[in-house]
Design a protein around this nucleic acid. Structure first.
Lengths: 165, 165
DNA sequence: AGAATATGTCAGCCTTGTTGACATTCCAAG
DNA sequence: CTTGGAATGTCAACAAGGCTGACATATTCT
């Protein structure tokens, strides 16, 4: 420690501090995905299915293209996941009314049930972490995460909330 | 921290708040890995190589088993990565002196150069995010991340720092 | 009519994770 | 000194989930 130099206002920007932040992200993300991963492992699903289910639940009726933009994968990759979810009756794909080229995605009852199960597990950990750290820490957490995003991702991150009714 | 039952002290624990935190983690992690990923893509390496290089740089002379515990993958998976790094002359594997079964891992000059390149890119983003959010936000960020880790991961996270020197 | 858009699909490749089986080397306990 | 177990390495096979490229089909826009 003791990076003396000038005041302590820059202390949190030393390479060592940044490195600790990097490692904290690495280890925390493992925890972040651990609970849903355990649930998914018991079925024939993976993290990719979880992500699709999450964002369909979040924006019911979203189009394939929209989901593609949010997830940042190729349509082939997403399609493989969506196909299994539709075949298994967790997701419903409805042809658009105004533009019939589009497919609007919705969770079925079974899909919503799985979403709840995954979401509950993930939120439980988040809730425990928030509770342990306190409201002010949470505010800082959110600020740093947002600053870490690519600008387009930040847009999408906000767009999801705005799209909500 | 004021677990005040009613009132706004619980507002940050609503499902919607938690969900936003979850999405923030998702989008932020994408940004977090984006810069190193771009560099790695130009070589024949991936994120797994980055992780190995990072923790070897962090704890020079660490054993394969130790690295296995930190990374949380199978030895076969790690071995495949290590083998290419050793073949390419980025990592050196030295037989232990006291226990000659162990292999102690070190970065070569070339390995250290790549580590620096990847690390610089990742730290630059981290530094920008820290700077934008401010020291108090950073403290909160770290608190929440730490609370989100699995206990064993938290141990390892701290152990890395203690092992230093 | 023709261009552009939204979606789906086939085929093939890569990275990175998994299991299982097995060899080698070495430490340590009997 | 022998043997059991630990640490490591290696081979083979497989799966998830990324990727690219090519191509098909509707549908909509110009």
């Amino acid at each position: 420690m003791a990076e003396g130099q000038s005041g302590e206002s820059l202390l949190f920007l030393t390479d060592e501090q940044l490195r600790q932040g990097i490692e904290a992200m690495f280890f925390a993300y493992r925890g972040f995905t651990a609970d849903p991963d355990r649930i998914l492992a018991t079925m024939a699903y993976g993290r990719a299915h979880h992500r699709a289910i999450h964002f369909i639940a979040r924006s019911p009726g979203t189009t394939v293209n929209n989901l593609l933009n949010i997830l940042g994968v190729t349509k082939q990759s997403l399609n493989r996941v969506l196909r299994t979810l539709i075949e298994d009756g967790l997701v419903e794909s409805r042809q658009g009314t105004t533009d019939r080229r589009e497919r609007h995605l919705h969770l079925t009852e079974a899909g919503a049930a799985l979403e709840r199960k995954l979401s509950d597990a993930q939120r439980a950990r988040m809730r425990a972490a928030y509770r342990a750290a306190g409201p002010e820490a949470v505010a800082g957490f959110r600020q740093v995460l947002e600053a870490m995003m690519d600008p387009e991702m930040r847009r999408k991150y906000h767009a999801i909330r705005e799209a909500e009714t």
